[in-house]
């Protein structure tokens, strides 16, 4: 089961401020805040330990309501067959930026460093978003180099594809090898983790130009719509 650790995530403060600076205008006027921002950017770069565990699973049958893998496992409802219909394989992965980030967020909060805790939390979220996008791009390059196509990716729980399939994913992948486990309530620990799946096949799949956000139940209510990935 391949494990990929060699990710160089970028934490470009200038780019971040370009994208999100408008949400921090007032707080940055507080004395000492620019220094807190600088320190937190250094902190995320130090603490993030990006890792991905993944595998490509051959598809046995694509039913309307679910995909049956060659090993007999059923995975994917909701938009999965619409997005990945025609795939010969499903690439399934779990991405994490590790426990140190979450631990530090908690420590800052406990110490009353609320601004630092909030900012590191946000940077941790962006980091795992960036990692999942990088992983997807890597899958795409790999598929293309073999003359294959890749669908857009989906994550269980974000669309009508039930979060209950997290249990299936964790049966298929031994994510403990990258330090990620699934709680009884299907929450991944450490929290800054994401699971995703994409179809690989000889023909294009799904609706061109759509992303996981287009299938998400939050829709326009989500302030992060289309922005999960990357700093």
């Amino acid at each position: 089961m391949p494990i990929l650790r060699d990710w160089r995530l970028t934490f470009d403060q200038a780019q971040f401020m370009q994208e999100y600076g408008h949400t921090f205008v007032r707080i940055l006027r507080r004395p000492g805040m620019p220094e807190v921002f600088d320190a937190t950017f250094r902190e995320i770069a130090e603490l993030a330990e990006p890792a991905v565990i993944w595998e490509s699973f051959p598809v046995q049958e694509m039913r309307h309501e679910a995909v049956i893998l060659a090993g007999g496992q059923r995975i994917g409802n909701g938009p999965v067959t619409t997005v990945m219909g025609g795939a010969s394989h499903l690439a399934i992965g779990v991405c994490t930026v590790g426990a140190a980030v979450s631990d530090r967020i908690h420590e800052h909060k406990e110490a009353g460093e609320v601004v630092r805790s909030m900012l590191l939390d946000q940077l941790g979220t962006l980091a795992v978003g960036q990692l999942s996008q990088r992983f997807y791009d890597w899958l795409k390059t790999d598929a293309t180099s073999r003359g294959l196509h890749i669908s857009t990716y989906l994550s269980p729980g974000e669309s009508e594809w039930s979060v209950r399939d997290q249990a299936v994913i964790f049966d298929l992948l031994d994510a403990t090898q990258i330090g990620v486990s699934l709680t009884e309530s299907l929450l991944m620990k450490p929290i800054k983790s994401l699971s995703l799946m994409a179809g690989i096949g000889s023909q294009p799949m799904g609706v061109p130009g759509t992303t996981h956000c287009d299938y998400c139940t939050m829709g326009d209510r989500c302030p992060f719509h289309g922005k999960h990935a990357g700093i």
Binding site: H22, T23, F24, R26, I27, R30, V114, V115, M118, L119
Partner: peptide, 11 residues
């Protein structure tokens, strides 16, 4: 206002 503003307000 944004999340950071609420945090600042709390402080």
């Amino acid at each position: 206002y944004y999340l950071s503003d609420l945090i600042m307000a709390g402080e």
